[in-house]
Design a protein around this nucleic acid. Structure first.
Lengths: 366, 366
DNA sequence: ATTTTTAGCGAAAACGTTTTCGTGTTGATA
DNA sequence: TATCAACACGAAAACGTTTTCGCTAAAAAT
């Protein structure tokens, strides 16, 4: 009998109960001694702490979560992780979360409405204290936000970033898409571009829309009348990552149809880099014949030849801000329920943090 | 009094106890009814299930975790998330984890030994059932693996991927670095390259070492004597992502010193793409003067001009395999403790899954 | 008519904590 | 000597589950 145990002893984590039993005191005494309560005598405290240290006691997180009714973990819900921007955001979230004693648990919606819901429900069952998320494309298309309302109504706060929506009452962190686009296009104009094209997405993606508006605004501000022929809307429902040729063909056709183009503003770096590639194939020189600016500062921009001038989104900073917003709200709730009748027990209003964009000048502009 | 509650009623998740109270039965009855136990009468079962559905009852995950002493969540610990390879691995892990009812919680070591340890301890306190990890550079350098042994000894299984180490008793998923390199270099040789250079990292990174060995093997196999001058070892302790010029200078110098080079094999895509860029600046044509093959099939390879021929690592597949290995071990433990004296109660041996590499041919080779 | 079975339910323990509220002992005070 | 703090500790509840074991009453069997 007990052969198995004799064969290989693995030391499971020790609990308060075991310490108590071993030292012949009560569980409460152990707990208090370990937290340094003055209730317990110097002697026993010493003894218990030494024992706990020896056996590397660490309180069980799950038990603490159950007791405190808070898990100290943040749920991140994003459409896609193999994406430079989103991973920088996660890095930012993880940084401040860890610093403030939180863990992060990530779910991927894969741009799907149902996966977004399933993931939310999976995590909202007590696993997390709050969400940081960016809305999936399908959800934006359907405009169905009931799951967000539902979790907020259950007392689980949400912070949205980048792809946000005004219908949901929560904190938001966005990049100044509009002004970023204005800056980029203005720069092209100042660099003497006369015919500036826009390569963008379909309108239901809020950020794409805003960047388009910024493009138009910049043109108008410089008294240039926009030409709809100079705007190329890519339908990215066909997953463009795997059909690169389609994208290239579309852009090639676009450039051929508009031979006067001498400047391109693209709403993401893939479109921008592809535009450069196509332009070169068509015999144009970048930046001398055509100047290009993209949005989102990722690896592609940095390592393309010529390297791409971009509007940087500061993903990491967005993540950090989002995490700070969420944690502040979570910890405000704590103190609130205690000082029930203090005068600062109303919740802070929902705020929208705007991260300024920055133009990173590289070789694709003059 | 209770002004706050009247102002805005938020519906906290309902518990078994509340249902029990409301329907005037015991908690046990509710629990059994919801799980469809035959102990409970048809009537009460109906009533309870209807009520639970109406109030959207969902069992509290934390309570379940405490009771079952398993969390159904996997801890992922990687050096860096803003990295195409690692994010594809995460995607793979998340895919199968979700399908099998698990969540993933991620920690970033940032290539630091201490952050790796802190993260492990933070999660090993009951938050997760097992780890999937890739070892940080600093840990590999120090060769200090006590924290891995410690957590395994606590009964928390580990699956390592990509950056693994033989000293630790756990399942491993690696790419066939050696043969991948052999294939790549052989391809260059078959493409008539006579002087093939290697751009690699310092030796303490296991994968770099293996790829270097593969390079040497391929040469020898074709009766070519390796020339140490043709091997460039990059010291990436200087974080090369932020000092791109340093890397370029080093490679430029290298190419100038070895003007006969007509083929380059690089152990990652950054080195490969940079080599192409530098070669072009020095007036070489890729692939006509110099052919280039990289390791790791990421965005850079796909979108570089010319696009880069690479050895694909299949990160997603690695993640999927790793998750399957871990979950199988976790669930084997379950049944094992029950059938204590069955004849299959010994643990499965630790296995090392090797993911085959694949050469993706693009424009940088002929 | 008495015993046995069975259906239907509840009490309680357990998971690992923290915290509130006793309670017994000691030494000092009245 | 009787009363009272102060001190040092333990018992128990609570967080939300599941599960084992009892228990009661009715139905079935003897």
């Amino acid at each position: 009998m007990l052969l198995f145990d004799e064969l290989y002893v693995m030391k499971k984590r020790i609990t308060l109960k075991q310490i108590a039993k071993e030292l012949d005191v009560s569980v409460s005494t152990v707990s208090k001694a370990l937290s340094g309560s003055s209730e317990i005598s110097e002697d026993t405290t010493q003894k218990i702490q030494a024992f706990a240290k020896l056996y590397k006691y660490r309180p069980n997180n799950i038990a603490l979560s159950l007791k405190n009714r808070k898990t100290k973990t943040i749920g991140i819900l994003i459409p896609e992780i193999v994406h430079h921007f989103f991973s920088t955001v996660i890095r930012g979230i993880e940084r401040v979360a860890n610093r403030r004693g939180y863990n992060v648990i990530v779910g991927l919606s894969n741009e799907s409405f149902t996966k977004e819901i399933i993931n939310m429900e999976m995590l909202a069952n007590g696993s997390i204290d709050g969400f940081i998320l960016s809305i999936s494309k399908e959800t934006l298309l359907k405009q169905d936000y009931h799951h967000f309302h539902a979790t907020i109504n259950q007392g689980i706060p949400i912070v949205m970033f980048d792809r946000v929506v005004s219908e949901v009452a929560c904190d938001k962190v966005i990049v100044d898409d509009f002004n970023g686009a204005v800056k980029a296009v203005s720069k092209l104009i100042e660099n003497n571009c006369k015919n500036i094209a826009l390569i963008t997405t379909m309108d239901y993606i809020s950020v794409g829309k805003l960047r388009t508006q910024g493009y138009l605004e910049a043109l108008e501000h410089h008294n240039i009348v926009p030409d709809t022929n100079m705007i190329l809307k890519i339908d990215d429902s066909l997953n463009v990552e795997y059909h690169l040729e389609l994208l290239e063909d579309e852009i090639a056709q676009f450039l051929k149809n508009n031979p006067k183009i001498d400047g391109v503003f693209a709403v993401n770096e893939l479109y921008a880099v592809t535009a450069m590639k196509v332009a070169k194939k068509l015999g144009f020189d970048v930046p001398n014949d055509i100047q290009v600016i993209g949005f989102t500062d990722g690896v592609l921009s940095k390592h393309a030849t010529p390297s791409l001038t971009t509007v940087s989104q500061h993903g990491q900073k967005m993540g950090e801000q989002a995490a700070n917003l969420l944690i502040e709200r979570l910890e405000a709730e704590d103190t609130q329920s205690e000082q029930y009748f203090s005068n600062n027990n109303e919740k802070r209003d929902f705020i929208k943090v705007v991260i300024e964009t920055e133009i990173i000048e590289r070789e694709s502009t003059k």
